[in-house]
Nucleic acid binder design. Structure first.
Lengths: 224, 224
DNA sequence: ATAATGAATATTGTATACATAATACAACAT
DNA sequence: ATGTTGTATTATGTATACAATATTCATTAT
């Protein structure tokens, strides 16, 4: 048999994964707000499945830091205290700098080209004013850098940290006055990678992260 | 009522957590070997519970990186490829250095005292030759540093990374010829924290981590 | 009014049942 | 022997049932 049609036999996804993705999206998008209860029966009927896959999805969200459950009381969408967010931001700062350093050593020419394209996509997205689009373009830009580390575990770790932060970052993106800053910062990051200048890359990423940190923390403070 | 007897109302632990802890321990201790299948029915009967808590515990192990499941085929204890381990070690190196730096800034006098005590406990444990005891003493030493960062999220992240590494590190600890090296390295780390010398702390931790990395990678290579 | 009490109800925890896919293996054909 | 097909068995995926705890809210006592 000239086996060249390899049907994508991975069409199958367990319901727990479907549910997990659905809930995760809902949390990140803000449809499920921090502190909101995740009631199994309610979610089950809403998603048209039984409680079993819901429960398993909740266990997964829990380890992802997106849900918190108290025995016998149930789960709720994780809400951040200021301290918890500062802790996350601290880690994220360190790892993002580290990732940029690695990227300087390892990024390919092809990836550099893509990085510039993503940078421009981001600038274009700002003009639309569509927050969801902007957030996505930003993710895409940074993903190229993450990918350039060649370390998939680091990528998923950084993605996880980003998840915990980004849902509190909408406000920052919304404000047009911040847009020029973001453009400049992305440009600086791009340039330092182009030059493969580790020191400069770390510095430009640090500034980028710190600016966001300030904004995110303000959101949390207002919320508390 | 002079409420000063606060009965530890937290005697209750869901079975999923009991199962999770049990399996986690078994994996780390090596009772469940990398690649070994985790069959629900078998585990359920062995632990005297139903499949439900087993499944939920597996979902938790999965997110912890200790188990891997393939849809419709079941879960097995995660086995490391050399590349995956290198990736983990790379992250762990970066974060451990970062933690040491933070610890230099934040460690309290009390914690410094405890660190020295743990350092001596560790040296004592080496003399017993009891691998489990040594590993524990080592964990205790480093935990003081982690704790000194004042960042619980970072602590749990580091503990998770450690988990993924330590089960491959037994051999290294076993060999008596490595013991003097470990003692020296711990001493160097302790001294740099005592002086709150961030640069030196980073360097001494880096060396410590790198030596372990070499040993761990050898174990993986032999296994493959 | 306020606090305490106790059904009624809602929600989680756990076990079990049933459906479906994966696996092992025997029987058969080549 | 090798390979193939079909069947029995095993294991997972999902739904449901039952048990136990939390919560709610009306009732009662103070």
């Amino acid at each position: 048999m000239t086996d060249d049609f390899k049907p994508n036999m991975n069409a199958y996804l367990p319901l727990r994964d479907v549910v997990f993705n659905t809930l995760r999206e809902a949390i990140l998008r803000g449809d499920l707000q921090p502190g909101e209860r995740l009631m199994e029966l309610q979610l089950a009927s809403k998603l048209g499945v039984s409680r079993t896959p819901i429960r398993e999805a909740i266990r997964m969200l829990e380890q992802e830091g997106l849900a918190v459950t108290m025995p016998r009381k149930g789960a709720e969408v994780a809400k951040m205290t200021l301290k918890a967010m500062e802790d996350v931001l601290e880690i994220r700062g360190a790892l993002d700098e580290f990732a940029s350093q690695l990227a300087c050593e390892r990024i390919t020419e092809e990836q550099l080209v893509r990085l510039e394209a993503r940078k421009q996509d981001f600038e274009a997205s700002l003009k639309t004013g569509d927050v969801k689009l902007i957030a996505e373009a930003d993710v895409n830009f940074h993903d190229v850098i993450y990918e350039a580390t060649g370390n998939p575990k680091l990528v998923s770790l950084l993605n996880n940290l980003r998840e915990q932060i980004y849902r509190y970052r909408v406000e920052y993106i919304k404000k047009a006055e911040n847009h020029p800053i973001l453009i400049k910062e992305h440009e600086a990051i791009y340039q330092s990678l182009l030059k493969r200048d580790e020191k400069e890359a770390r510095l430009s990423i640090r500034e980028h992260v710190e600016n966001q940190a300030t904004a995110v923390k303000e959101v949390i403070v207002r919320q508390e």
